[in-house]
Design a protein around this nucleic acid. Structure first.
Length: 418
DNA sequence: TAATGCGCACTAC
DNA sequence: GTAGTGCGCATTA
């Protein structure tokens, strides 16, 4: 049921683990949720995965193991540097969001990295390290793990299992012989425990569509390059892209289907892929995405109204026409109008999805955090975007110039016509 | 036995 | 020096 409920549970759990100074890893999260709420690990994993896609939860590779972060509370640290320039904004946001939320992504790890490659770089670093030691993946809990799964770590073993998640949680394990795709509850643990055991899960292969899509894959890729190529990813992308390409045309909801559990939840996987996983691996794709269809493809993901998709695309196109549709200006304008109308109805989730889809997943979190819905978006001024969201200047400028401004302009032009 | 608390070392800034 | 993170061990339920 309520995903919101799960969201609370999971976020709570993550917070709880953090306060306890325990690594909020999949296993612990599942265990705690089960203990507290009786939820099946599988389900928890699935929900967690969704949250990751929504960027409500960030999956990070920290010290060689995977951890999950409450996106709202993360990101303050690493970003500080950059924030400096945006301090005011940061502060603001901080106040708002229970304080710790600075959208800026903090942990490098988390960094829902979007397009900022540089950051990624940094962010990635962590992951990379780990990755480099890919092996350790398994080592997870212990730092020793890094060197080698110390024998001692066998404990924890299992307990949690989650097939689905596995993909998510389980970063691939190069060698790991994992129960494969099946990873049913029983075998389960592996999924989670993989980390501990020191063996690495190679969950990837099974590549559950979703899982792959997200961070995981990215993460995975980092961890095990070999796997990274895995089809899953490509597939996802392909999927996403197609629609995108067609987005202009009639193929609106297709993408959504992929991931829409509920309206609110829709998130594009494409985004997810970058999300946390700053991997270098991921990066290229991002770039690709952005460069070419990126936007168009992603945009279509918008939740509820299929119209958005088109609209969005169009909006983008307005700015980047050249890139996208060589000549469907007319259509575009029409769509734009639709879009703008809808804009007033966009929910916070829609807005966040829009920006995620537009290639700014990290910044999308900021919009979500600041509870920017369609109406708010229309009211946003340049300064709001540049400093009020606590996001980096570069992306902020792009967001404002290419999206916010375009959306507003379109909307108001339309109003005038009316 | 599992859950929790927390000192301490690491790391990044 | 500050702050986030989480391992590892002690304590508690």
């Amino acid at each position: 049921m309520s995903e919101s409920k799960y969201r609370e549970w999971i976020l709570d759990t993550i917070d709880s683990l953090r306060s306890r100074k325990a690594r909020p890893d999949l296993e612990r999260i599942c265990r705690m949720v089960r203990r507290r709420h009786g939820s099946e690990p599988d389900r928890t994993c699935a929900e967690l995965e969704k949250l990751i896609q929504e960027q409500t939860v960030l999956k990070v590779n920290y010290k060689g193991s995977i951890s999950y972060r409450n996106a709202a509370k993360v990101q303050r640290r690493s970003r500080k540097k950059e924030d400096v320039s945006l301090t005011a904004a940061a502060r603001r946001s901080a106040v708002e969001e229970a304080s710790h939320s600075d959208l800026s992504n903090g942990d490098s790890a988390f960094g829902p990295a979007d397009q900022d490659e540089e950051d990624l770089e940094a962010d990635t670093s962590i992951a990379m390290d780990t990755d480099s030691n890919a092996d350790e993946e398994g080592g997870d809990e212990s730092r020793d793990g890094q060197e080698r799964p110390s024998p001692s770590h066998t404990h924890e073993d299992a307990t949690v299992h989650c097939a689905p998640v596995r993909a998510v949680s389980a970063p691939c394990s190069p060698s790991g012989a994992r129960p494969g795709p099946g990873c049913s509850p029983g075998s389960a643990l592996d999924c989670a425990s993989f980390q501990k055991a020191g063996e690495r899960p190679n969950s990837l292969p099974p590549s559950s569509p979703r899982a792959l899509a997200h961070n995981d894959w990215a993460y995975d890729s980092a961890v095990c390059p070999a796997e990274r190529q895995h089809p899953g990813m490509q597939r996802d992308k392909a999927v996403a892209m197609k629609p995108a390409a067609q987005s202009v045309a009639p193929a609106p909801c297709a993408v959504n289907n992929v991931k829409k559990d509920d309206g609110s939840k829709v998130e594009d996987r494409s985004v997810s892929s970058d999300q946390l996983v700053p991997d270098s691996a991921a990066r290229p794709q991002d770039e690709t995405r952005n460069a070419s269809n990126g936007r168009s493809q992603t945009l279509p993901l918008l939740s509820d109204n299929c119209t958005f998709k088109k609209a969005d695309t169009s909006s983008l196109t307005a700015t980047d026409d050249n890139l996208l549709n060589g000549g469907k200006v007319d259509d575009v304008s029409v769509k734009k109008e639709k879009m703008s109308q809808n804009l007033l109805q966009w929910t916070v989730a829609d807005v966040a999805s829009y920006f995620s889809a537009a290639g700014f997943p990290e910044q999308a979190v900021a919009f979500r955090t600041q509870e920017i819905d369609g109406k708010s978006l229309l009211l946003m001024q340049r300064s709001d975007v540049l400093t009020g969201l606590s996001i980096r200047l570069g992306p902020a400028l792009k967001i404002y110039e290419r999206h916010v401004k375009v959306l507003q302009r379109t909307h108001f032009l339309e109003c005038e016509d009316l």
